[in-house]
């Protein structure tokens, strides 16, 4: 994975700040934007995959056994997964807690 934004010095930038490596949006830590984070209660999870389908940032990993895992590198904390979960298995908590 390429360097994070905050690790790049000005001399390392391409002329005109052109990005010549496709797909490097994957390096962008959108998880920094989060003010609330999802807390997953595996005991309540019915493995329906609704959260996985609704997540707008593909920040939920579907595991082989049907359970899920949040990818906090990308999760912006929008709360859609918690809202859509039919089993109340995801709760949103403030980041500072």
């Amino acid at each position: 994975m390429a360097k994070q934004e905050h690790e790049i010095g000005w001399k390392e930038l391409n002329v005109g700040c052109v990005i010549d490596e496709p797909g490097n949006a994957a390096c962008y830590r959108t998880g920094d934007w989060r003010s609330q984070r999802p807390v997953y209660n595996k005991d309540r999870c019915i493995r329906c995959g609704t959260c996985y389908i609704f997540c707008p940032d593909m920040a939920i990993k579907a595991l082989e056994d049907g359970y899920i895992e949040h990818d906090l590198y990308y999760c912006k904390g929008c709360g859609i997964c918690a809202q859509e979960c039919p089993a109340d298995a995801i709760a949103m908590v403030d980041e500072e807690e």
Binding site: Q4, E5, H6, I8, W10, L13, C17, I19, D20
Partner: peptide, 24 residues
């Protein structure tokens, strides 16, 4: 040879882009 020109830049890198422009 796809490249991106004029990409968005956040606060973490903005100062570096402007320094590069000034030096140029």
């Amino acid at each position: 040879h796809p490249v991106t020109m004029g990409a968005f830049t956040g606060p973490a890198l903005y100062t570096e882009t402007k320094k590069a422009q000034d030096e140029a």
